[in-house]
Design a protein around this nucleic acid. Structure first.
Lengths: 341, 341
DNA sequence: TTCTCTACTGTGAACGCTCACAGATGCCCG
DNA sequence: CGGGCATCTGTGAGCGTTCACAGTAGAGAA
């Protein structure tokens, strides 16, 4: 097969100008906003563009403007965790589409190895993208630090935990979501409420646990360390955590699990231990991922507004690229009641 | 916060040349292969590059070479189906990493709406990417046709079904995988083997069904239309298909399901109908997705070599960009035995 | 010596665009 | 009627690179 047909040389701004009977400058002005052009000229140019099928050469434009009109979507560190997580897909898709609306392509960047990390950092700091959407649960991510230091516009998904310079971020209100869920479990009359936390070096992990603690304290339920176990958001870790929980606190009557994926594992473990859900043990998840309805009983869970998160990330990043000062954005979550609690 | 620090103007090839005491041309030669440069000059240039932190400006390079040194990863049509599919992630990651090794960024392109389709087609045909990795199960995909007609290097994942000009593709050997699975079920002594096919407007759907038929014919088992039901690769469709199957052919003693996701649904339906797996009904999946081990019993399934598929797609695409004629690549699958069959 | 060949190096032009600036036109106001 | 202003248009320069070409130097052959 091969390149049958080949690619013809595309028309340039010059061709359009000649076709429309105006100068390059006028065509350029029409292309960029259209200020200070007469209606007649604009019309002629647009017609010529249509006729010639002209598309701007972004390389030439970028060369002079210094902008690349593209942004990077950077995933650092534990790729498996995210790639297994359906929310990642929703986020990636949302960002891609939000950017597409601005005609800005998204470059996918996966920093797994140190070598990749170096390459990507160089690529970004060299100005090949205008800004970066960062997904990194890691505390004190060195790539993020370096990019921030280089003054690269940066918006993180989720609160970047740890230290260092301040970074704009967009996140769901993890703590408040956790509070809602635990309140719901309390409302069901449960008092021995366990928790399977996420990794405690991630903001989500920390915040969801904090919400759990707050509500119990508020309600006057005394805290019991045996009711607290932790996982790493994976299904398998949820299963293992639930086993530990059952061993440490056999009288548990509800579990708040910090992710649906882990909740799947918890359900498996409970089933094996012959505990009925929700009669014996109510289970609450977090994420409202597809997994939540795939299991039986369907999971009561906390929905994170991923579509809004991605849209906000893009909005904030573009604002930052535009030179504005941007702050953190926290979006509300929603309790989704299903069969498991 | 905002742009504290700001971005300094990066060094150019000119700066490097001055620093190394040579001309632009020599630096450029070192950058591109290093032929016809004296060892001394090359050394001086490399030292200067290291000292200045120079990174080539890809826009300037692209402007003159006409190459963009980037490729698009294009997903057309039913986005939900793919985004729910964990294999998609593996593929995407594999392609990104394989390209990264060549220092080529991957642009993610999602063609959902007609508007997006138009925009993306224009973007690609304008030469903003050198080639396209295409994921599209759709028959006669108009975007693919248009790209092919424009002479854009193109490699599809899976055999593009239907008509039109020939397109290079990389695929797992669906038919052979199906054969392996059905042979395995026969080997277990099952004779009333049902099948839940994928959508029959996709190559995978067609090929896997063909493999099923071939083996049964070979084995002298007479075909029974009641044993054939179809789904769309989604979990829910698998569940519905299994219900139909049980109603039409209650004596079914094995089911070959064309995807693990659907197999999950099949398992649910069988459980509800009080059929034990694998004792009453053996179940074979396809994909070896994470879902395969997440369910109980764990799925016997066919593993597709996704890591090799992505690597091959990139290899073939780069060859095609380099002007070579490329053909289809078919990779072998592997039977993974677990509890369900 | 002179001529040729190879290895290497520097120079200008060009890629397609935007931007700053200068010029032109028309209008309103003094 | 001239000056100021707003609106519109064309022109040249330059963004950072590669590429073709010309040119230099040294080695080896005639």
């Amino acid at each position: 097969m091969g390149n049958t047909g080949g690619r013809r040389k595309p028309p340039t701004i010059h061709d359009v100008a000649r076709e429309a009977g105006v100068s390059r400058g006028t065509v350029s002005r029409v292309l960029n906003g259209g200020h200070y052009v007469s209606p007649a000229a604009a019309e002629a140019v647009n017609a010529a563009i249509r006729r010639t099928g002209y598309v701007v050469n972004r390389h030439a434009r970028s060369l002079i403007t210094g902008r690349s009109d593209s942004v990077g979507f950077l995933l650092t560190e534990p790729q498996e965790r995210f790639f297994e997580d359906p929310n990642f897909n929703v986020l990636l898709r949302g960002c891609t589409q939000a950017l597409a609306a601005h005609d800005i392509p998204l470059l996918l960047m996966l920093a797994g190895t140190d070598d990749e990390r170096r390459r990507i950092t160089r690529y970004i700091t060299a100005g090949h993208v205008d800004g970066v959407l960062l997904v990194s649960s890691h505390s004190g991510d060195p790539v993020a630090e370096e990019l921030r230091a280089a003054g690269v516009p940066l918006v993180a998904c989720g609160k970047p935990i740890g230290l260092g310079s301040k970074v704009s971020y967009v996140a769901a209100d993890d703590r408040d979501g956790a509070r809602d869920m635990v309140r719901h479990l309390l409302g069901l009359g449960r008092r021995r409420i366990g928790v399977v936390t996420g990794p405690l070096d991630t903001p989500g992990g920390v915040e969801r646990l904090a919400g759990y603690r707050e509500v119990l304290a508020e309600a006057g339920v005394e805290e019991d360390e045996r009711l607290i176990v932790s996982g790493d958001y994976s299904r398998a870790s949820g299963e293992a955590a639930a086993e530990r929980l059952l061993a440490q606190a056999p009288d548990v009557d509800a579990v708040f699990v910090a992710s649906d994926l882990m909740a799947q594992g918890v359900l498996t473990a409970l089933q094996r231990a012959d505990r009925r859900v929700p009669e014996d043990v109510a289970v609450g998840g977090f994420d409202d991922s597809p997994a939540a309805v795939a299991v039986s009983p369907a999971l009561t869970t906390i929905r994170q507004p991923w579509d809004r998160i991605s849209a906000e990330m893009v909005r904030v990043l573009l604002a930052q690229i535009g030179g504005e000062d941007t702050a953190a954005v926290i979006l509300p979550t929603e309790l989704v009641k299903r069969a498991s609690a």
